[in-house]
Write a protein that binds this DNA or RNA. Structure first.
Length: 698
DNA sequence: TGGCCGAGACTTTTT
DNA sequence: GTCTCGGCCA
């Protein structure tokens, strides 16, 4: 009866899919078919009548993953997936809060602040509270507040041990009060508010515990403390939690992800079934062996070894570039050759540790006429013109939204300057109300603005969503404004696109209310990916590549200080996270993998000399094919291995010291007591007198 | 109100 | 090197 669902699965996968009503931890390695297991399990549970679609709660990390799960599910089962509780933590919490807004002490039309909105609120607050923004930078305050909420803490539970932390706590409390007044919630608040509501209201909690007998969690290694706690609340003592994750792919510790939740889960849920999915369906074995060898250097692991039934494939190609431009030129050449062999550009990815590295690559690709696409950067709903239009729409839905009001009260410019705003804010503070409320009694230009918003509200009344959006854009004067701007054409095109987005939204969702659309815009800022029809080389950070796969992958900038990043060394267990990042990068490749590093590169406006990444040493030499060493010609002439004191040393040259090991020359001082500064990989940076130091060229 | 200039930063990022 | 932000001036 259910055989057709299981036929394509291996034994481990099938075991996971067909588990009974018990909690289980699935350690799913890269490329081991984890999404398939997750969706097949849901289908299997429903198909066998163990649970109805309404009894399932499935959590993913991104909207994209949630969508994919829904798509696959409807392909497997003839059911309507629309009402199912499958979504991100934030999306599901939002759903809870919308349904029970009274219990959560929120207005029915509460709005969601994205990170930029939140920062704006904080900046405004700091000004209002007369806080020294040098001592309390808005970004740090934001990190403090979000960090606290991720841990499940509010201001009243924050410890304060000095004036600074006391102040932070005070700002935190004031910030929450401000959001409450405006009827807005930030991302972390969605989770925390929902968690508190379920914790407090036992009737509600039991209701949902009865309902969601099967809870499934994707990317479990990326859950935060609060998210895990939320899961525990919903699971109660009896429900079955199916947690799928890979501790080796935990690369978001820096933003609160806690892979230790996997161990806690085993203990708290008395997990009897830990199933490892280790067969990889993606890569050839050379690539997997390299990945296994690298990750084996991490101590803090649950333990797992990927294998494949496919052959060993091609060796991993290693390229030693003279500098960053040389590295880029090499990549361009190889990409051209691959394209000539018939590999689609979209099946080739160039990965790097940090975004700044893309510039040199882009330049080289542009000159070579290779089409490419860079992932990251601003997304559709984050663009200024879109945020402006959305702010007008937000005011139509909830005029008490101060953030939205401040964004557009004078955009396009209508002569409401800083003075009038200050008066307005003063008045609002006086009556403990919103800016909108204070604006009601104002005259002149402010009154004209409130009239505008009110007429927008009237015009929108009864209109279908897309027409509403179009009307508000029209009435706002945004288009006229951009007409006069130099680069306004793109912005106008984007505003038109917003109307299209509304049409798509109505078609793809049951909802067609303005509030739902605004929620969608906040919760899902739009895709990074552009038109898939366009064949282009893929450029992205390693983080952005998680979950993707390509025929060929280039990992560039494999240098100490860059990858692993120097900032990571000072962090607790930072190096292990960098290594997991490297593991993720390597396992993106199906057939061919290139690793490259440059002896020097331009960084922060300075030339920096780096030695090859330690991760390269962690790969068995037998798997590697060294393509060449493009060494500067002078170093070539000196020949290898001859100790030499008389010969001038070149900055950037690799050296070996009998005691300190490998390093790179950073600086040179000539004269009778000539000395060099060497950055040793293991021993740090040292000045050495050439007369005594037994330096050897590499 | 907008534009210009200097200072300072500058891993990774989804919701 | 390059971008953003804030302050200041016309």
């Amino acid at each position: 009866m259910t055989e057709h669902l299981l036929v394509a699965l291996n034994d481990r996968q099938r075991e996971a899919v067909t588990l009974g009503p018990v909690s289980a931890l699935i350690l799913a390695g890269a490329g081991s078919g984890k999404t398939r297991v997750l969706t097949t399990r849901i289908a299997w549970l429903i198909h066998n009548g163990l649970v109805s679609p309404q009894g399932i709660l499935a959590v993913t990390f991104t909207n994209k993953a949630a969508r994919e799960m829904l798509t696959r599910l409807s392909a497997m089962l003839p059911i309507n997936t629309r009402g199912m509780w499958i979504g991100t933590f934030h999306g599901l919490c939002n759903r809870f809060l919308k349904t029970h807004h009274r219990e959560a002490n929120l207005p029915a039309m509460f709005q969601i602040l994205d990170a930029a909105d939140q920062l704006a609120v904080i900046k405004r607050l700091l000004k209002q509270m007369n806080v020294d923004e040098q001592k309390y930078p808005a970004r740090q305050v934001q990190a403090y507040i979000n960090g606290a909420k991720e841990e499940g803490l509010r201001a009243d539970r924050m410890e304060a041990y000095d004036r600074h932390s006391e102040k932070l706590r005070e700002i935190f409390a004031e910030y929450d009060a401000q959001c409450q007044r405006e009827g807005v919630v930030d991302f972390a608040e969605l989770l925390l508010r929902c968690h508190e509501m379920l914790g407090r209201d036992s009737v509600l909690r039991r209701h949902y515990q009865e309902r969601f007998r099967y809870i499934l969690v994707d990317e479990f290694q990326d859950t935060s403390r609060l998210q895990y706690s939320w899961l525990k609340l919903l699971a109660g003592p009896t429900n079955a939690v199916f947690a799928v994750g890979d501790d080796d792919q935990s690369i978001y510790a820096f933003r609160g992800a806690r892979a230790d939740n996997m161990q806690d889960f085993q203990r708290d849920f008395n997990v009897q079934h830990v199933i490892k999915l280790e067969q990889n369906y993606r890569s050839h074995s050379n690539i997997l062996e390299a990945a296994n060898a690298i990750i084996a250097h991490n101590k803090n692991r649950l333990g797992k070894n990927l294998w494949t039934a496919e052959g060993q494939g091609e060796p991993i190609r290693l390229f030693d570039a003279y500098n960053d431009q040389d590295e880029a030129a090499f990549i361009v050449d190889e990409v051209k050759a691959l394209a000539a062999e018939g590999v689609a550009l979209s099946q080739i990815a160039v990965l790097y540790r940090s975004n700044a590295q893309s510039r040199v690559l882009e330049h080289a690709l542009f000159s070579a006429g290779i089409s490419y696409r860079v992932y990251g950067g601003l997304r559709f709903f984050e663009r200024a013109e879109i945020k402006h239009a959305l702010a007008y729409l937000r005011l139509v839905a909830n005029p008490d939204d101060d953030t939205a009001l401040l964004r557009v009260i004078n955009f396009p410019a209508r002569g409401i300057g800083a003075r009038s705003l200050e008066q307005l804010q003063e008045a609002a503070r006086g009556q403990e109300g919103s800016l909108w409320q204070a604006a009601q009694t104002a005259g002149g230009k402010v009154a004209a603005f409130t009239t505008l918003i009110k007429s927008m509200q009237e015009s929108c009344n009864g209109l279908p969503l897309p027409e509403m959006v179009a009307a508000v854009i029209q009435m706002s004067g945004l288009k006229q404004h951009y007409l006069t701007e130099k680069e306004g054409a793109d912005r106008i095109a984007n505003l038109d696109e917003l109307v299209n987005a509304a049409i798509t939204f109505v078609n793809e969702n049951d909802a067609d209310s303005l509030v739902d659309f605004l929620t969608f815009a906040s919760l899902e800022a739009g895709e990074h990916q552009a038109d898939p029809g366009h064949d282009a080389l893929q450029l992205m950070t390693v983080h952005a590549a998680k979950g993707l796969e390509f025929h060929t992958v280039f990992i560039s900038g494999l240098e100490e200080g860059l990858f692993p990043h120097e900032q990571s060394m000072i962090e607790h267990e930072g190096l292990e996270e960098e290594r997991r990042l490297m593991y993720v990068a390597v396992t993106r490749a199906r057939r061919r993998l290139y690793l490259s590093h440059a002896q020097s590169r331009m960084l922060h406006g300075q030339v920096r000399y780096n030695i090859p990444s330690r991760f390269l040493d962690e790969i068995p030499q037998a798997l590697l094919k060294r393509l060449n060493a493009r060494v500067p010609s002078q170093a070539m002439q000196t020949g290898g291995g001859m100790p030499s004191i008389s010969m001038p040393w070149r900055i950037g040259e690799g050296v070996r010291h009998p005691k300190f090991g490998q390093g790179v020359i950073l600086a040179y001082e000539g004269g009778s007591d000539a000395r060099v500064q060497v950055n040793f990989r293991d021993a740090g940076t040292k000045w050495l007198a050439l007369e005594y130091a037994k330096l050897e060229k590499l």
